[in-house]
Structures are given as C-alpha cells and as structure tokens.
C-alpha cells in the first residue's frame, strides 16, 4: 500500500537539496517545465474529476449551491449501504489485522524452516493482489451453494446453508479476508522487524518470559502500528467494488455508486456525486487516523 511509505516519506530529509552555483539557480527558474506534462496528466485524470465530483456534491444540476445532495445520502437505501460497507470493512480489517499480525510474527520466528518465509511472503504478495472477479468466483467455488467446502461439510453433517451466505456479513468478510489477511502480513513484517533483538534479549536477561516481553514491550510498541494498519485495511475494503459486485452484494456504497454509471453516462449525477463525496470523506478520515497512529509509532520504531 502506498500509504505506509507516504508516512515515512513525510519525515524524509532532502538528501539532494544542497547549495548550488548560480548557473543552477538560473536553470531552476525553468526547471519546473520538466514536470509540466506529469502534473497536466494528473490534473486531467485525477484532480479535475475529483474536483468536479466534490463541486457536484454541493451544486444542483443548474449549478446553484445546495446541501440537498448531501442530505439525500441520509435517505434510504443509502444509510443502510454505508452501514453495511462500514461493518464489512471493519470486520474484515479486524480479522485480517489480527490474523496478519499473528502470521507475520510466526513467519519471522527464527526457528521456522527456511522455506517458510519466502513461501508465505510471495504467496501474500500474490493473494493481496488477487482481488476482484476471480476472487469472488473462487469463493463461490469454495463456500457457495455448491462449493467444494460446502459440500464437504454437508457430507460431514454440517449444513452451513441457508444460515450462511457469501453475501452476508460473515461470508463477504471471509472473501475480503483473502486479500486483507496477506496485505496485513506484508505490512506488518517491517513493523515486527522494528522490534529490536536487544529488547527481547534484555527482557529475557532481566527475567521476563516471551509472554512477559510481549505484554510489557512488544505489544505496547507495535499497537499504534497495528491499529494504524487495520485502519488502512478498513479503507482498502471500503473502496472495494469488483469483488462485491461479482459476489452479488448490492447494499454497499460502492455498488450503489456503480448503479448510477452506464458507459459514459451518469444517471442522477447529483446523488452519485454526493455518495462518492461521502466515500472520500470516510477515506480521508481513515487516512488521518492512520497518519496520527503512524506518527505515534514512528516515535518508537525508528
């Protein structure tokens, strides 16, 4: 995820910034020309569309300022969609966060066989990117009505249907877990590596058990990062569209937004703008929380 890097980058000092002779100073006046194509591109394909939808969220079709678009978010079916989006994202982030942390810690244990680390890391890199259509159908083949595991469980006497469904909170969060969990493993590994060997050894030397180390030092030190990364996972799940679409979940914000778009046409654009704006607000909040937590943990893990 780009974000984990970004927080770091914030603290970075400019190695390249230095005093330069006059010739360079003259050049610098024109140096910005070199980045014009990039910023123009970003403006056209990212900044202007974003600006347009934010403005659109607060204007009528004729361009007059209004809060009525935003107000419409609070009418059915949107509150339920936001609620389910938040629940699903939070649950999958919670599961993924905790499991990812535990597995990352296990992978880094010095006693595990040598092949474990590359195997888990490369697989995680794959699984974290394996979201979307194929993932949804992979789970249909696993835990769908006729899924391999469903039928296996049925043979064993456990009939998970109809109480279970891949469209429900539990089922959908399991599907999301398939990318959240490995993502957390990848993001958590540098955090756990940040726990210095000297801390473990000093704790042990002073009489603490492994449990004592985690209770007094390990967990207090990694908790901000752990929470921060779980917030990141939340944002990751919150903006997912394709997986949910292929699973046939309809009461998610992203799916609701998708329903307004058909080709190059946006129906009821003011509602779509308002919903999209609502999503941006929630993601910005998660990023702010993430940054604050990251700042706190970087105090210790430097």
């Amino acid at each position: 995820m780009a974000l984990s890097e970004i927080a770091e980058a914030g603290h970075r000092t400019d190695v390249l910034a230095g005093t330069k002779p006059r010739k360079q100073a003259r050049n610098r006046r024109w140096a910005f020309l070199g980045v014009v194509p990039f910023f123009a591109y970003i403006a056209v394909f990212l900044l202007i569309p974003t600006g347009k939808l934010i403005v659109g969220a607060f204007t009528t079709t004729t361009g007059a300022f209004t809060f009525s678009n935003i107000a419409s978010i609070f009418h059915a079916p949107y509150p339920a969609a936001f609620e389910f989006s938040v629940e699903l994202s939070a649950l999958s982030a919670l599961w993924g966060g905790i499991m990812g942390f535990l597995v990352a810690n296990a992978v880094l244990h010095h006693g595990v066989p040598r092949w474990v680390r590359p195997a888990y890391l490369s697989f995680s890199g794959m699984a974290a990117n394996f979201a979307g259509i194929p993932l949804a159908f992979a789970f249909t083949a696993t835990l769908g009505n006729l899924g391999v595991v469903t039928i296996l469980l049925k043979h064993l006497g456990f009939n998970i249907y109809p109480s279970f469904s891949l469209q429900g909170l539990l089922g959908a969060s399991l599907v999301y877990l398939f990318f959240q969990f490995p993502l957390m493993i990848l993001l958590m590994i540098p955090v756990i590596e940040g726990l210095r060997k000297e801390w473990r050894e000093a704790a042990s030397n002073l009489g603490a058990t492994s449990f004592g180390f985690w209770r007094h030092i390990g967990l207090p030190v990694v908790t901000p990062s752990l929470l921060g990364l779980m917030v990141l996972l939340f944002g990751n799940a919150f903006s997912a569209y394709a997986t949910a679409y292929a699973l046939g979940i309809s009461n998610l914000v992203t799916i609701q937004i998708g329903q307004f778009i058909n080709g190059n046409n946006v129906f009821a654009p003011q509602d779509a703008y308002a919903l999209a704006f609502g999503m941006i607000v929630i993601i910005v909040i998660t990023i702010i929380i993430y940054t604050l937590l990251q700042r706190r943990s970087s105090r210790w893990l430097k």
């Binding site: 000093a202 030397n205 002073l206 009489g207 007094h216």
Partner: peptide
Amino acid sequence: QPANKRNMGMVFQSYSLFPNM
C-alpha cells in the same frame, strides 16, 4: 538454564532500553 533464569545482568552495545518505558 534459560536466559531468564540465570540472573545475569547484561548491558548491550546500544538501543537496548525499552522505548515505551
């Protein structure tokens, strides 16, 4: 005996203080 039962005080090269304490 494991390290945590030996009752030996060790001072490391650096950075061994617990950062959260």
